[in-house]
Design a protein around this nucleic acid. Structure first.
Lengths: 349, 349
DNA sequence: CTCTCATTATCATTTCTTCTAATACTACTC
DNA sequence: GAGTAGTATTAGAAGAAATGATAATGAGAG
């Protein structure tokens, strides 16, 4: 029997839907239906009760599902072991990332990975943060790239970057040509903020409060892209990770200014499901991500209009390693420090 | 990837031969070659070193083989569990039996099994005793039916029958019409014996010696069929399990006479590989075998020429159950007793 | 070293399976 | 009870796997 059918069944069972399962396996709904039908015929038993609408597993289906899940997992492990012997890194690597990881940097990591391990099949998807966690938890993705990574429950996180944040302003803004600003300069400015429930918003508020600065929040958005668009049309200014405005700075639609008197950073981490053996290929991709910031700068380093240190947007992004068991303290405002972080119930931006 | 390919690879690996493995999987040698080739292509690694003859597994192949063996085993277990939930007994049951188990009786068990469990697929092969053990040990058979079952090492045995032995003579022999004979009557008779290395020979010798009887051994054979043929042509008489001469008695080519003063029995047992989870279907077949002697007599009970108890050849064959840990004592000369037996290094006939 | 035998690889062909698209069916929802 | 979303069921197309025949290869004998 095709192992494929078993995979399809598992996906169908997990999603409680033939169509969803089929989609996950990149086959037609018809195929999924037939595949499960085959298994049922072979076993002489119904695995799925279709008379309920979201479908339900029969007791037999439940047992089969759990058994097969484990088997598939083991099978992948065996295949991975075999390939490890031959120094071959292969197999799928499924990564789900938030939109704002910094496309440029990801691009380099992806290229490097595909160069080093041509037999591996990397799939990189950009999703809403909640979907990232969902995919990781439901085994739809091997890794998730998120900001303010959760750590706990079924999620395990690895520190990856401390993205330094800068003040982003329209090119015509008075600050645009300054080398740097102090937080105090923001007093009374029109400000585009993140929505309240996001950790990044609370972090920014904390810094502003400590500097006794009151900004005028004119808009709140839950994602960086929209904030950038708002800045472009002159609604105000915002504090954003520098790596997320790289593109706009290089084509002149936005400008970024360092904040001199505070090191505001957005931690970005790699999350994966706990208790799940990572394949060699996945491990290699993590390695590349972690070493990414030490790599040579991109082919044609774009120079933002404001003068800045030559290593550009990479400043402050540094290697990190597997977290032993994080503590929720915020890292001191210095770069190059590996600190565990475990924010409870934090939303991320 | 077809799980089939993995099975083929495992069979090839185990037998260290493509052709043998192909045969075991009932496919052409060409297919086996291609199947393994597919796996190798998928893994990007050679699994088998074909530059040696007999072929050798590469280190990767070794790992893959062992991993897959376990996986296949587990997969079968899962399938079995699922079917158990639906009260379905299915899957293959591969039985290897010695020629002389008694075809008539096997026939009934087989029919009963196929009637009760139509979804199971029973394959019954008759082989030389050594091959029976070999097949069981190499996982080519789930069960072996042998006389004087070994117990120990990788073999585990279940007592099954105590086949009563009778004196078999040509129809024209003076004993042929007697109700019974005493061992003493055999003094000086021309005797067809088993070869020396067989346990059954030693057992017979023991009985004869105790009765202080000296027979004239004119031939020695290592299998019952040949002995019967020798008796038919008048070379002598022999002590054989009654159930193995059923056919010849009913068509008049041989005659059987009870031995009144000794209960000579040949124990027949069911052997299987230790540490191997038996599928439900296999277990059910064992149950049927064990209960076989209590079943109603065959459709048209053939009556041997000599008058005898109405339940015919079944006398003395009785239920037995799983051996706890046998002791090598011979059972007392009564019927209906379950006794464990563990002859060391015994050959079987 | 060469020949032979046994085994395995390769190829072209046939057979079988599995996929998809379109459509019919079914269970929930309002 | 009609609408909607999901699932089953077809037939035909695309694809995979099995086969038989034949070429290539390794082991062992002379």
């Amino acid at each position: 029997m095709h192992l494929r059918f078993v995979e399809i069944f598992c996906d169908v069972a997990q999603r409680r839907s033939f169509s969803k399962g089929a989609q996950a396996q990149q086959v037609s709904q018809s195929s999924a239906s037939q595949a499960v039908g085959m298994l049922e015929k072979r076993l002489g038993t119904r695995l799925i009760d279709r008379s309920k609408r979201p479908l339900e597993l029969t007791p037999a289906g439940q047992v089969y599902f759990e058994g097969c899940r484990e088997l598939l997992e083991r099978f992948r492990t065996v295949e991975d072991q075999v390939q490890a012997i031959a120094d071959r890194v292969a197999g799928p690597v499924r990564v789900a990332a938030i939109y704002s990881v910094g496309l440029m940097q990801m691009e380099r990591s992806v290229q490097r990975f595909e160069e080093l391990y041509p037999d591996a099949k990397l799939r990189l998807e950009y999703l809403h943060p909640d979907r990232v966690y969902q995919q990781v938890l439901e085994d739809d993705a091997d890794l998730g790239l998120v900001s303010y990574p959760r750590h706990g429950g079924d999620i395990e996180s690895i520190d990856w970057q401390e993205q330094p944040m800068v003040l982003v302003v329209p090119p015509a803004h008075p600050f645009a040509d300054r080398r740097s600003i102090a937080l105090a300069d923001l007093n009374g400015e029109d400000f585009i903020g993140f929505t309240q429930e996001l950790t990044i918003r609370r972090e920014i508020d904390r810094h502003l409060k400590r500097a006794r600065v009151a900004v005028h929040v004119v808009h709140e958005f839950d994602n960086i892209e929209t904030i950038k668009r708002a800045i472009e049309i002159g609604s105000g200014v915002a504090l954003l990770p520098r790596s997320t405005v790289w593109q706009e700075i290089s084509n002149g639609t936005l400008a970024a200014v360092d904040v001199s008197d505070a090191e505001i950073v957005r931690p970005v981490g790699i999350v994966h499901k706990r208790n799940k053996q990572l394949t060699t290929a996945v491990q290699k991709f993590i390695e590349i991500l972690l070493s990414g910031s030490t790599a040579q700068p991109p082919f044609t380093a774009p120079e933002p209009r404001a003068a800045r240190s030559p290593n550009g947007h990479q400043a402050g992004e540094n290697k990190a390693h597997q977290k032993t068991n994080g503590h929720s303290a915020r890292p001191p405002a210095t770069t190059g420090v590996d600190v565990a972080r475990k924010p409870k119930k934090s939303k991320r931006a």
